[in-house]
Design a protein around this nucleic acid. Structure first.
Length: 579
RNA sequence: GCCCUCGUAGCUCAGUGGAUAGAGCACAGGUCUCCUAAACCUGGUGUCGAAGGUUCGAUUCCUUCCGGGGGCACCA
């Protein structure tokens, strides 16, 4: 018997192998249907594990499902299952239920201990691993990160951790929108605040940024450059819109860098580190010109011209996105000669392809979803015409609540609850666990006051507490971690079995979280695993006079600790040794 | 009008073809001379928004409708 049978994947494979034999003998297509599942039973009368194999394959085998299940069960039990399974049972419309023996549970625990911190890692087959670029947060550097961004940050980073854990090669990327008119307004607003600090009459533009943070930023600007721009402002009569392009460019760059430094600091507090920060402006620099644009923008335009997809209309340059499923064609170069942000995005994605990523994931807020169709169309228009390589995830918004009522945030007004506010209020662990607790496509209501009030009953502490409890037990054990090679052949009780079944699910939970882009599955799993542990703890004393029982149960604790810590790490949450 | 998304217990939500649909919160009661009571145990509710369809089987897939949210610029 091989070690493979001690995890669910291996077990499923052995059942499928027997099923294939049966199918071959009956002359049906040999490979089992992909929908064959081996799952942990939800009710004890349905055994430890259950498979739908017979129902899924009955038609192809030309036999009634129950009869096929019977044949499958008998042959598997006589073969690979002999040493680990006590009996099988056909139930309902054709389920095959497996009742595993103590030997399987002991073997499974031995395997868990051997894998340690690597349990569940790299479970994606090599053929399915990709070099993946995940772009998220990507906030315009015109104002601080707020709680809405925190959701995308927590979601994106958890997704990255999960993708990397199962076997992908992941790059976290932040796209810096530092090219358009918003940045100009930002620079003008900064200039006005700077002027006010110098005692000049200067007004923040009507459509500028009014937030407090710009006043603080202006203070720092004064500290750094002193009165360097006083003359320019005086000459402009205090109207920042009349400043020279050169001065505004300098202010824009300084402001951008200052904001990005803040972003980095806030994200760092959350435990999120980006591998790449790509500037939109940089897409317009270097290389040859095409249609008046250099850099990646020029190259993108050249690519699209070669495909014959650009046309001019009313002085603007358009991309024929309708050829790729969009409902109207889109402007890339305005009649004024300026690029649209759409051109930037096309150039940007083209650049990401050039950098060799096999798969691109963008995480966008729901307020951008109207943009999905044209982006997919543009990506399909670009060589190598593989739209499936671009995946756009739309995250729903965070509804900021205040004592039960909706509260509106506005960056322009400066009425913002920032990421830093959130961290200060409830802490990093509670914040990250909370923010990835639900699927990204449901609206999340967040009431800061309530969150503070309830932070003591944040589910994260339930999970962390289980981890801390185990650490305490191991400390009390007074010896090194149990040796997996010396697990005693004890009987395995119901609570221990239940905990081990929960542990056995971890790899498939992580795999599905990766495949479905659903970190909240890990969140939900951790709560279930912690619950299993707390029940076990309450009913099974670990440290006792019986050395065999102590050895087995403390080993089970060690395996649970590793899985809890591993799962929490996937969400960027710490696993404390004491609470 | 068109597009996206959601609709499951009093509330917040899991559950992307399987058996009797599950957690947490809230509410009531019980459990530490015993490895951490941030824990455990006991109480109970569902026309899974509606109607059709596909299937051995549908909360899940398809169609239509109803309701909430978001989006439909030569703005970003």
């Amino acid at each position: 018997m091989t070690d493979e049978l001690y995890d669910l994947n291996g077990l499923a494979a052995s059942v499928c192998a027997v099923l294939t034999e049966i199918l071959e003998e009956s002359g049906a297509a040999a490979t089992p249907a992909p929908a064959v599942e081996l799952a942990v039973s939800r009710r004890s009368q349905h055994g430890d594990l259950t498979t739908n194999a017979a129902m899924v394959c009955a038609k192809r085998a030309g036999r009634p499902p129950r009869e096929l299940a019977q044949a499958l069960g008998e042959r598997w039990l006589a073969g690979p299952g002999a040493a680990i399974c006590e009996r099988v049972e056909v139930a309902g419309p054709g389920f095959l239920n497996l009742f595993l023996g103590d030997a399987w549970y002991r073997g499974a625990l031995r395997r868990l201990l051997a894998e340690g911190a690597n349990y569940g890692r790299g479970s994606l087959p090599w053929s399915e691993r990709r070099s993946v670029n995940v772009e998220f947060v990507s906030v315009n550097p015109t104002g601080p990160l707020h709680v809405g961004h925190a959701r995308y940050a927590a979601f994106g980073d958890a997704l990255c951790r999960i993708l990397a854990f199962v076997g992908h090669e992941v790059t976290r990327e932040f796209y810096v929108n530092d090219h358009g008119t918003q940045m100009l307004r930002f620079a003008q607003s900064l200039a006005a605040r700077y002027g006010q600090r110098l005692g000049l009459e200067a007004q923040v533009p009507q459509d500028g940024y009014m937030g407090e943070y710009l006043i603080e930023l202006a203070d720092r600007l004064v500290d750094e450059v002193g009165e360097r721009y006083r003359g320019d402002l005086v000459a402009a009569g205090g109207d920042p819109a009349r400043l020279s392009a050169g001065v505004l460019a300098e202010l824009r760059e300084w402001g951008r860098d200052a904001m990005l430094a803040q972003f980095r600091a806030s994200l760092d507090r959350l435990g999120i580190v980006f591998d790449a920060w790509t500037s939109e402006s940089a897409l317009y620099v270097g290389g040859e010109q095409h249609r008046g644009f250099a850099g990646e923008a020029g190259r993108a335009l050249a690519d699209l011209d070669r495909e014959g997809l650009l046309f001019e209309h009313e002085g603007a340059v358009w991309l024929r996105t309708t050829s790729f499923g969009d409902d109207k064609d889109r402007v890339l170069v305005r009649s004024s000669g300026e690029a649209t942000y759409f051109l930037s995005d096309i150039a940007y994605h083209r650049d990401k392809l050039d950098r060799g990523f096999a798969h691109l994931i963008d995480i966008w807020g729901a307020d951008h979803h109207g943009y999905v169709l044209r982006m997919k169309a543009a990506f399909a228009a670009l060589p190598p015409h593989q739209p499936e390589r671009l995946e756009l995830l739309i995250g729903q918004l965070v509804n900021l609540m205040e004592s039960g009522r909706a509260r509106r945030m506005s960056k322009r007004r400066g009425d913002i609850v920032t990421v830093d506010d959130l961290i200060e209020a409830i802490g990093v662990d509670a914040a990250r666990f909370l923010l990835v607790g639900r699927s990204h496509d449901t609206v999340l209501d967040l009431d800061i006051d309530l969150a503070v009030e309830q932070s003591n009953q944040n589910p994260v502490y339930y999970v962390q507490y289980a981890h801390a409890r185990i650490c305490s037990i191991i400390r009390n054990l007074g010896s090194a971690d149990p040796d997996s090679s010396e697990l005693p052949d004890v009987a395995v009780g119901a609570y221990e079995r239940s905990l081990l079944r929960a542990l056995a699910r971890f790899p498939e939970v992580v795999l599905s979280a990766a495949a479905l882009r659903a970190p909240h599955r890990v969140h939900a799993y951790l709560s279930e695993l912690a619950a299993e542990f707390h029940v076990f703890y309450r009913n099974c004393r670990v440290l006792s006079d019986d050395p065999a029982s102590t050895a087995f149960r403390s080993a089970l604790c060690v395996a649970t600790r590793a899985t809890l810590a591993g799962g929490l790490a996937l969400l960027g949450v710490s696993a404390p040794e004491a609470m």
